[in-house]
């Protein structure tokens, strides 16, 4: 019998065109981007056709659909507005996600140049580029995202775990207890215990 590590001889080699069809992710440094280009003006047209019905003419969002533009300097507020402009650290993510998963319900129908143009328009909607800007695989790495340095790696181990691995109190842990907030005052729970999905 084969031993783990020896390999089992299962599966077959992936062909180059198969890998090209499925491996379309783009890394933060731009690796994985196809050749192509698109300008803000073209992007505005494409966005109006394919995106604006949910995301608004100016990427401001419609109804409950995601807001893609604005919200700058709101992250420390009570209700932060997290958009491509105010929050997203990498432009690669925008290209990759639009190319792979948008428009919602018609994913993977945009050409590479369409995606470049739409991403250029989203940048323009966030005042990150001028109206005559053209985005391409060549200048992609030059775009600076507003919140690129806004993230820290999970720091729970030092900030929380060290202090919370303690022998917990069992008796006389508080002088008094009072109710400070009640969910029934909000009354947002679905009637009859919620809508069944059956």
């Amino acid at each position: 019998a084969p031993q783990p590590g020896d390999g089992y001889g299962l599966g077959r080699s992936a062909l180059a065109e198969e890998i090209a069809a499925w491996d379309v992710d783009v890394l933060p440094d731009g690796r994985g981007l196809p050749e192509g280009r698109g300008d803000v003006f073209t992007g505005e047209e494409k966005f109006a056709e394919a995106c604006a019905s949910c995301h608004g003419d100016f990427a401001e969002g419609v109804g409950n659909w995601p807001v893609l533009a604005g919200g700058f300097d709101t992250l420390a507020r009570k209700d932060p507005v997290k958009t491509v402009g105010s929050y997203w650290p990498y432009l690669s993510t925008v290209w990759d996600y639009v190319h792979r998963s948008m428009p919602f319900g018609q994913a993977q129908t945009l050409s590479d140049d369409d995606v470049y143009a739409i991403v250029a328009y989203i940048l323009y909607s966030n005042d990150l580029v001028d109206e005559d800007f053209e985005l391409s695989h060549e200048n992609f790495a030059d775009v600076e995202m507003y919140n690129a340095d806004g993230f820290v790696v999970d720091d729970r181990p030092e900030r929380e775990y060290t202090g919370w691995r303690v022998d917990p109190c069992m008796e006389n842990c508080k002088e008094t207890v009072s109710i400070t907030m009640r969910s029934t005052f909000l009354d947002v729970t679905p009637e009859d215990g919620g809508e069944s999905v059956m």
Partner: peptide, 12 residues
Amino acid sequence: TDMAVGSREETS
């Protein structure tokens, strides 16, 4: 890969 992809589901 040699780095995290930084996909939408680990950034936005």
